[in-house]
Simulated assay, not measured.
Amino acid sequence: MKTAVVVFPGSNCDRDLAVALELVTGRKPLMLWHDDTDLPEGLDLIGLPGGFSYGDYLRSGAIAARSSLMREVVTAAGRGTPVLGICNGFQVLTETGLLPGALMRNAGLDFVCRDVALEVVTTDSPFTRAYGAGEHVSIPVAHHDGNFQADPETLDRLEQQGQVAFRYAEEVNGSARNIAGILNDRRNVLGLMPHPERVVEPAHGNTAGRRLFEGLLGVLA
């Protein structure tokens, strides 16, 4: 399984994601600088890590979404290459238009950093296939702009088409319908605010996040 992690100025979870991918796949991912102009051939998964790309100075993910390499990521996603965006990576995915909606300031205007309970809403995707539908898992969050919002028609469509991947099982940030992660309509792009790469080995306290990567490995290897 050949994977890559896109690194932006300000990324601070790129190594965490790389370590998780290597742990599960047994192969170091490629670390791609945002200003590269070409994606390597044969990638099975592209990861967009958490952090504060470009310092979030304009709007979270807005500048990163216009980087040279993201144009290639959008094209690759259109061909069916799986793309995983975590936290700031989720924000980048919405800014590119690969996913609908927007990530706004948390309802309480506070940075939220703690373990949260998540409900697995759908298992019909390579990212969620290793979980059980309706299962509750604990995965940490660390964000200030994780409040997912979209117009009612978009929210209804996401629900009806089974594109809500994860839902907060508790109040976290004010997200519409407690949505924590969504899929595109082809189910090859997932954006989620919680950090599965931070719970992949027993030393982390639990391994709930590992199953996301193991599910991908089972499909893509």
Results as ranks from 00 to 15, higher is better:
Ala180Leu: 07
Gly85Phe: 06
Ala165Ile: 11
Pro82Met: 15
Val116Gly: 09
Arg27Phe: 00
Leu118Glu: 10
Glu153Thr: 05
Thr154Gly: 02
Arg15Ile: 07
Val120Ala: 03
Ile86Asp: 05
Leu103Ser: 05
Val83Ser: 13
Gly215Lys: 04
Glu214Thr: 05
Glu159Val: 06
His204Thr: 02
Arg211Tyr: 11
Cys13Tyr: 11
Gly181Asn: 09
Asp185Cys: 02
Arg114Val: 07
Lys28Phe: 00
Leu192Pro: 01
Gly42Ala: 12
Glu72Ser: 15
Val5Met: 13
Cys13Lys: 12
Ala221Phe: 00
Gly42Gln: 11
Phe166Trp: 02
Glu197Phe: 07
Leu45Ile: 14
Asp44Glu: 06
Glu197Tyr: 06
Phe148His: 04
Asn147Ser: 12
Leu23Tyr: 04
Ser175Leu: 03
Val121Ser: 01
Phe8Cys: 13
Glu95Val: 13
Tyr54Val: 11
Pro194Glu: 11
Asp110Leu: 14
Met104Lys: 09
Gly205Gln: 08
Leu183Asp: 01
Thr81Arg: 05
Leu216Phe: 05
Tyr57Thr: 06
Leu212His: 04
Ala169His: 03
Glu135Phe: 08
Leu217Tyr: 03
Thr75Gly: 10
Phe111Pro: 03
His144Met: 13
Lys2Ile: 06
Leu39Phe: 10
Arg129Lys: 13
Val83Asn: 08
Glu201Cys: 04
Leu118Arg: 04
Tyr168Ala: 15
Ala76Thr: 14
Arg79Gln: 15
Tyr57Asn: 12
Pro9His: 07
Gly47Gln: 03
Thr75Ser: 15
Asn147Ala: 08
Ser60Leu: 08
Val74Phe: 08
Arg129Ser: 15
Val172His: 01
Gly89Thr: 14
Leu39Ser: 14
Asn206Ser: 05
Asp44Met: 10
Glu214Gly: 10
Gly26Gln: 02
Asp56Asn: 11
His34Phe: 14
Met193Thr: 04
Pro29Glu: 08
Ile139Thr: 11
Phe166Asn: 10
Gly132Leu: 14
Tyr54Trp: 07
Leu93Thr: 14
Ala130Leu: 03
Val172Phe: 02
Met193Ala: 05
Asp110Trp: 02
Asp36Asn: 03
Asp16Thr: 07
